[in-house]
Design a protein around this nucleic acid. Sequence first.
DNA 1: AATGAATGAGGTTTCATTCAT
DNA 2: GATGAATGAAACCTCATTCAT
Lengths: 193, 193, 193, 193
Amino acid sequence: MNPGKREKILKAAIKVFARDGFYNAKMEEVARRAGVAVGTTYLYFENKDDLMISIFEEEMVPIINAMRREIAGQATATEKLTTFVRVHLSFVEKDPDMAHLLEVEMRQCSKFIHGYHGGRFKEYLDLIAAILVEGQIAGEFESSISPTIFKQIVFGAVDQIATNYTVSRARRINLNQAADQIVQVLLQGITKK
Amino acid sequence: MNPGKREKILKAAIKVFARDGFYNAKMEEVARRAGVAVGTTYLYFENKDDLMISIFEEEMVPIINAMRREIAGQATATEKLTTFVRVHLSFVEKDPDMAHLLEVEMRQCSKFIHGYHGGRFKEYLDLIAAILVEGQIAGEFESSISPTIFKQIVFGAVDQIATNYTVSRARRINLNQAADQIVQVLLQGITKK
Amino acid sequence: MNPGKREKILKAAIKVFARDGFYNAKMEEVARRAGVAVGTTYLYFENKDDLMISIFEEEMVPIINAMRREIAGQATATEKLTTFVRVHLSFVEKDPDMAHLLEVEMRQCSKFIHGYHGGRFKEYLDLIAAILVEGQIAGEFESSISPTIFKQIVFGAVDQIATNYTVSRARRINLNQAADQIVQVLLQGITKK
Amino acid sequence: MNPGKREKILKAAIKVFARDGFYNAKMEEVARRAGVAVGTTYLYFENKDDLMISIFEEEMVPIINAMRREIAGQATATEKLTTFVRVHLSFVEKDPDMAHLLEVEMRQCSKFIHGYHGGRFKEYLDLIAAILVEGQIAGEFESSISPTIFKQIVFGAVDQIATNYTVSRARRINLNQAADQIVQVLLQGITKK
DNA sequence: AATGAATGAGGTTTCATTCAT
DNA sequence: GATGAATGAAACCTCATTCAT
């Protein structure tokens, strides 16, 4: 098995799935872009679904690790939360195809939705929950906030901004400014003091 | 023709699209559930895509109207924002199939994604933006928050909660509590005072 | 039964069958053009095939009669043959839709081909055969020519010219000149004396 | 790919299209007869129309070439014309399916009719025109005859005989005799001297 | 391991025909 | 008789997957 070839197929699939959508994407096009024969893709991945799942599983690992490292480098929970939002959006900016997959296409892969949930995605979301809990313990954050709900709020907000950025072809949205605003709202709320 | 029949097909499509996903859904199953012949569905809708678009267009209208009415019944912008979040989640609770469609499946319908965006959906998001602006003018809300970004934050947060609720078959999540927490975060932030 | 309505349907069918071809023609379009409901066409004609057959049968009658009359008005077999060719092409010029049907579309109607042959069409061809025989008896024409073969030669030649005229949208072909040339060849041959 | 397989599909299509007609022919039946799967036919031909066009294009080439060779072997224009008629009818006798396609079914393929006309078919007709012109120059044939019209007369006559032969299942028609009669009429006309 | 031709199940859509009103 | 909404069979074509080379 050639691990480089596996990687090439994976990268090609990201491009094609992102561009055409999971269901409209053709295995032949993935193979063509990877510079291999169709049959070869089936040597490295069980089937189309498995290819999708693998993208998620394997591309998510470095992302989660990088995020974890970035967060660890921050002193306070407040800074950690700020970091999460900024880094996530910088990921989106750097690799919009991958971002689009994680946001939109992933949800269509039936095997993913039915029963898969709980792998890397939960791990990623729990980074947010951990930050909240840490802040609550440290007395930075309100203890009345539920980590389970909060992680969804943060991810949802960030993901919506990201989706909007990814979908709108003209990438004239300022993700840095958006990150700041998200952080401000999450930390201070919108109520005028 | 027969508007009742059209409605039956639409409702059947919502069920089937929600259960099987847009691409896995079969027109034959939609027809079966609607109690009509396959050909009949094509008397009322141009094709599968049109059926999906129509669901969005026609089911969104009463939702938007109801939301608008509920918001109008509130005095302050703060109450209006609270209402938006609660009512949205109550919609999700009342009709999870429809919610699932709007959240997940809709994005797969190619015609929807390419060029359609901006109809009812934008209208819905702009309800949030209007609330923010109103609050800013009234002096309730911080004027430094961008309406364009804020509406995405709110929708993203609420939608993520909703998606999670819809996907998890066991509906033991308390949406009321989630609504309260979302509102609290949005209004006050999580920073301890 | 309203015979006028039957006629309207027949005429509409000629137009539609000629324009779209028998297989691509839709009964709904025929009905629309006739100004009746789809179901009505089935009150006057058993089915699509029957409609085609009826066109042939019923439109052919006046044509054959007119042709017979014209021929009868001529004194010699030579003049009669000349008349046949000219009148046929003038029919084509007057009603290209009908001509197109008889030339091209008719052959596609399976019931027509399988077993039908021998109705009006044979009657029409036999007008030619009769002219030849008459001329042979009168001593005008060579007696070595087979009527069965000759009628096909004449019809084939005339029909090919007609088809070419009908297909080429730009109707700049001179059918009169073509008629003269056909007659000349048939009567004298092309060999230089 | 595999040119032999392409040929098998082409031959199968000729049989099926000739027997059932273009519109009634099923791709599945074509595949079955070719001994391949349905999908395979689409590896070699874009679609049903393309298959039909390809039959015409590719089967016509050897026919035209053979005809050209046969004609070239004759000394006088008179002999060449005789040869054309005889060889054409011998083709029909040898391969009635192919003949039927060229005569009847071909005209139904929409792509063929709309804009295609003028490729091989014109080439074939022009063989006749060339013979006439050659004979006129050599002083064998009357110079008053238009080549454009004459080629249609000859083809029409021959084609009508061929069609009649092909349609009538009982092949008891003597094509050799028919060829002689056609030639006699074309060369000498029917007028008794 | 790699290829890519071959497979064939399956879905959308069309449209002639029917039949309740 | 007239209507036209409803029917549902049937066919083209796609494309994930396989397998002989």
